[in-house]
Design a protein around this nucleic acid. Structure first.
Lengths: 144, 144
DNA sequence: CCATGCTCATTAGCTAGGCTAAGTATTGTG
DNA sequence: CACAATACTTAGCCTAGCTAATGAGCATGG
């Protein structure tokens, strides 16, 4: 059944369909609170990187700088991100997650995984093994 | 290496990461033209279903009816979707893709798959087979 | 050594997409 | 037949994204 789909093109279609649908489901599992997807994504990138300038963060998130200005503004209002001046370059700014930002991130992260983890528990160990292998391949593809 | 990740929780994290990243990449591969992601998604659902009422389409797309009113409005302006009255219920409306809508959809679909297909071609047949199996599991999870 | 030009961030102003609440028309029903 | 329920739309709000323009700071070449 699956063997006909191992050539690149139909596989691309099937895989994309699965990804978009699953992505929606995961995104819809919003925890209580009022952080949007973009805000959470920016907060995540910031936390993983430690500290970034707005430009760098915009690049990572693949948005334009003005967009990032807005998003960071919201996060700053909520006290989740702090803005400190660059030590040597007066034009630049250093962004970093605050302690509260890190706490909020961890909480959201947990809630977001919950739905998916629950689904995965209902699969067989073999299916989970397949997904684990697939996830690694997909990460490689996403990077490449 | 992968075997430690076959329990549900860490797998959920890895998988979600892979999905969000890959989803972004696929979404960013916008073809020429000016259909947005939401518009294309609605057009796709309409075409696959044949014809739907606004309410049904909103449910499929998991948005609220007023949101769908807007999206369908744009598609109608561009002549990609047609609105016909319901034969028996005067409150309802039937939405369907026009011939041009179907043509535009096909063109976008091709362009959207292109990037991903190209990536997949560089994998080994075994990896593609793994992804094919995974895609089916994921579709099942997304539905469930 | 400073005038000119570049880069970083922000502001202004636009469009799209999402929501809730309210309005309108039609159907169904007690 | 009046009244409730349903389907869609309108109105009004917010977030997210964009481009263009602005202002501040840095770098550099005469």
């Amino acid at each position: 059944m699956t063997t006909e789909r191992t050539t690149a093109e139909p596989l691309a279609k099937t895989l994309r369909d699965a990804i978009t649908r699953l992505g929606r489901r995961v995104r819809q599992a919003r925890p209580v609170g009022d952080l949007t997807f973009s805000q959470l994504s920016a907060l995540t990138s910031l936390q993983l990187a430690g500290a970034l300038t707005p430009r760098e963060l915009a690049d990572v998130e693949r948005v334009q700088p003005p967009t990032m200005t807005k998003i960071v503004g919201k996060l700053e209002e909520r006290g989740l991100v702090a803005r400190t001046p660059h030590p040597t370059d007066g034009r630049q700014v250093i962004l970093a997650a605050t302690d509260e930002g890190r706490a909020v991130y961890a909480q959201y992260e947990r809630a977001r995984n919950e739905w998916l983890a629950k689904q995965l528990e209902q699969l067989s160990p073999e299916e989970r093994a397949t997904l684990a292998q697939a996830a690694e391949i997909l990460q490689r593809v996403a990077r490449g």
